Simulated assay, not measured.
Amino acid sequence: MSRPIRRTRVVRALADEQGDVPGWVLITLMTAGLVIVVWGLAGPALSSIFESAIARVTGF
């Protein structure tokens, strides 16, 4: 296979690529869901750690 033919196939394949929009939407929604779940579970603990750290810094 010659080089120009191979390059033409690559260019044609890239031009035909429309992207996987539903896949990216699903990934985005799943990531947002994971962030919400983790934030809900770890939020109170992180908040108390932050408040105690600020109290130590401002206590001086």
Rank of each mutant, 00 (worst) to 15 (best):
R9P: 00
R12L: 15
M1N: 07
T58C: 05
V11R: 08
L34A: 14
R7E: 10
E17Y: 15
P4R: 03
G43F: 05
R3T: 14
R6P: 00
R12Q: 12
A42F: 13
S47D: 09
T31C: 09
T28N: 08
E17S: 09
L29Q: 10
L46K: 00
A32S: 12
L41N: 03
A45L: 13
E51Y: 01
L41M: 10
A45R: 07
L34R: 02
A32Y: 02
I36W: 10
V38P: 01
S2L: 08
A15L: 13
I27F: 14
A13P: 00
A55Q: 12
E51I: 03
F60I: 12
P22F: 03
E17V: 04
L46F: 10
G43S: 06
R56W: 14
G43W: 04
R9S: 02
I5H: 05
I36T: 12
I54A: 13
V25M: 13
E17D: 14
S48E: 13
A53C: 04
G59P: 01
V38D: 01
R12N: 10
D16A: 15
A13Y: 01
A15K: 06
T28H: 03
M1K: 02
T58N: 11
A55D: 14
T8I: 02
P44A: 07
G59H: 14
G19I: 03
E51D: 09
A42S: 07
M1W: 07
V37A: 14
R6K: 09
V10N: 00
G40S: 11
P44E: 05
P4T: 02
M1C: 08
D20L: 12
G33F: 14
V38N: 01
F60D: 11
T28R: 06
V11T: 05
R3F: 13
V21C: 01
T28C: 11
W24S: 10
V37R: 02
T8M: 08
A55S: 15
W39M: 12
M1L: 12
I27V: 15
A15E: 06
Q18M: 08
W24M: 14
V37M: 09
I54M: 09
V11K: 07
E51F: 02
S48Q: 12
G40N: 10
L34I: 12
G33W: 03
T58I: 12
T31A: 15
A32E: 03
R12Y: 06
P4K: 01
D16W: 01
A13T: 05
T8G: 08
R7Y: 01
F50T: 08
E51C: 00
R12D: 11
I49G: 11
T8L: 11
F60Q: 10
A42R: 02
P22T: 03
A15R: 10
I54G: 00
Q18H: 11
A55R: 13
A15N: 04
E51P: 00
I54Y: 03
